[in-house]
Amino acid sequence: MSGAREEILASIRTALRDAPPEVEVPRGYRSSPPPADLVALFDERVTDYRATVTRCALVDVVEAIRSALGDAARVVVSGDLPYPVDGALDDDLSASELDAVDAVVTTAAVGIAVTGTIVLDHGPGQGRRALSLVPDRHVCVIRDDQIVAGVPDAIARLDPARPQTWISGPSATSDIELDRVEGVHGPRQLHVVVVRED
């Protein structure tokens, strides 16, 4: 199949002999005015997906995490999570061991107000991708200065070289009669804690 590459490229070049010149891409959408209160909008839009949002001051974050974890007995965190979580397991678990864990606590890289999205780039505090996927409850702590207005702001802030997971609400499906139902393969409960940096 070594000829496939050359043959495909040659077909493309033949097909494009009459190709028109480049057109300009309108980019006005990148400068549309941001919403007035980003954090309030983020809160509202995340809640719309039937996720839970808690807003707290930095001094109250440990208590907010504890309350978000609720009755979760086995909790896992990445070793570099900047907030203490009592009795949390370190992530040296196999996929099956992770499956026996009730909840995970992570930080995030960016929050998007307009779409109610948290983005993990699996940097410090966030762990590898499986960590925030297999346990059934995900508690995600985000600082209010990490929240941006829209998708273009998030794309501009994020590094494509890192793996990313964009999360908008708990796992859901629209596959039965096109109605959104929460809870398929990813975490069925998503709890977002927004920390005010004073």
Binding site: G116, R128, W166, S168
Partner: peptide, 21 residues
């Protein structure tokens, strides 16, 4: 597509990430 502001999950990856995936 689904008539949502954003779909629940979007994954991006750029080649192999050592120790992850």
């Amino acid at each position: 597509s689904t008539g949502e502001r954003m779909n629940p999950y979007t994954s991006t990856w750029t080649g192999v990430t050592p120790g992850d995936g």
